[in-house]
Design a binder for these strands. Structure first.
Lengths: 189, 189
DNA sequence: CCTATATGACAGTAGTACTGACTTAAAGGC
DNA sequence: GCCTTTAAGTCAGTACTACTGTCATATAGG
């Protein structure tokens, strides 16, 4: 990965005066790259969650509820087991948030027709409305970032995030992405 | 907006521009862009935190401890007030993690020489060693992502994250970035 | 001297997550 | 029809992170 390093150095400084070239300095800059990524991820996530958190707090909910609503919205008729895989939490942790969401009418649960042990999850109208409200609360910030950075940057953004994701997550990313651009309907359940 | 929609489908729209309301399908595709960003952010963060979490768990610590160590490492002689600003949590929440870190010798606290009300935070050798261990645990995943995506993608990645960040965070990002490339005032140990 | 600031500390609450054990219902193999 | 596995639900107990509100101490600055 030799020529990538120079790109990385250039990426660090859009207007590089003297882009530190010594070998010792190179290693240092590579590490600094990762540190800056940590910084930026932290700030972006911190600021992105402020708006939805405020809405959720009024409903006595937290981010875990948002994550459930998000993924059920993304993959209607999601199996409980799939949701557990995606969230990578325990059944008990999920139950604490999913139970109330069902009880309060945000999520509908129906038995699978093929495998009747399964409980397929779908948002109710009420759930879809809340999910949309939460999405809209983040949308502006996301849109501003995309507008500011430009389309090429957005592409890079997604490619780096994908690179950080393990295989299991990548399969979901691929499924969701191809599911929409292709047949524009429900992705394979 | 003319044939931008096809570019959006390719996820490589070079010129996002203002929201185009003329085509119903266009709005949907723009929304899908943001949804995919949410998905990717979720997975990347989920997978990025697995390795440090395992190390922290053995020390009876959590992510909040990691964040403290990270930022004190980034800005040695950090004031408590600055750390509170960065983390955007309450003093009480910080005390619960910072107190033990000081008690157990990970963080050193010294009175400010100019303003003796301040307590400047610096990592001890023990703290720097733990911070490094946590960093190295994430490094491989970050490095793989950067290598896979390429330098240009990394630049876009950072620009989008920066775009999501509010002014306060941007000031810190700028400070840390220029502080290292320029004057090299306090390079990471 | 007085007020504002920087920090620290206490009490109580809530959200998210964990482990471990147990139950029910249905699928699938034999 | 047994029997094992799988999908899902449930209970008890614990820990981490965060919140609000209140109060205390030391120091800076006018």
């Amino acid at each position: 990965m030799q020529d990538v390093s120079s790109q990385i150095i250039l990426a660090a400084k859009p207007e590089p005066g003297p882009p530190a070239q010594s070998h010792a300095g190179l290693l240092f800059l590579r590490e600094e790259e990762f540190r800056v990524a940590q910084d930026a991820l932290f700030f972006a996530l911190r600021d992105l969650t402020v708006a939805p958190d405020a809405i959720l707090a009024e409903l006595n909910m937290g981010r875990a509820h948002h994550r459930c609503l998000h993924w059920i919205s993304r993959k209607p008729e999601l199996k409980v087991g799939e949701l557990l895989e995606i969230l990578a939490i325990t059944k008990q942790s999920l139950a604490r948030v999913l139970g109330p969401l069902i009880d309060e009418g945000y999520v509908l649960q129906v038995k699978g027709q093929k495998d009747r042990r399964q409980r397929l999850l779908t948002l109710t109208e009420k759930g879809a409305a809340l999910e949309r409200k939460l999405f809209e609360a983040q949308r502006e910030r996301l849109a501003a970032a995309y507008r500011e950075a430009g389309g090429q940057a957005v592409d890079g953004f997604r490619r780096v995030l994908r690179g950080m994701t393990k295989d299991q997550g990548r399969r979901y990313l691929d499924e969701v992405e191809t599911g929409r651009t292709g047949k524009a309907g429900k992705p394979a359940q």
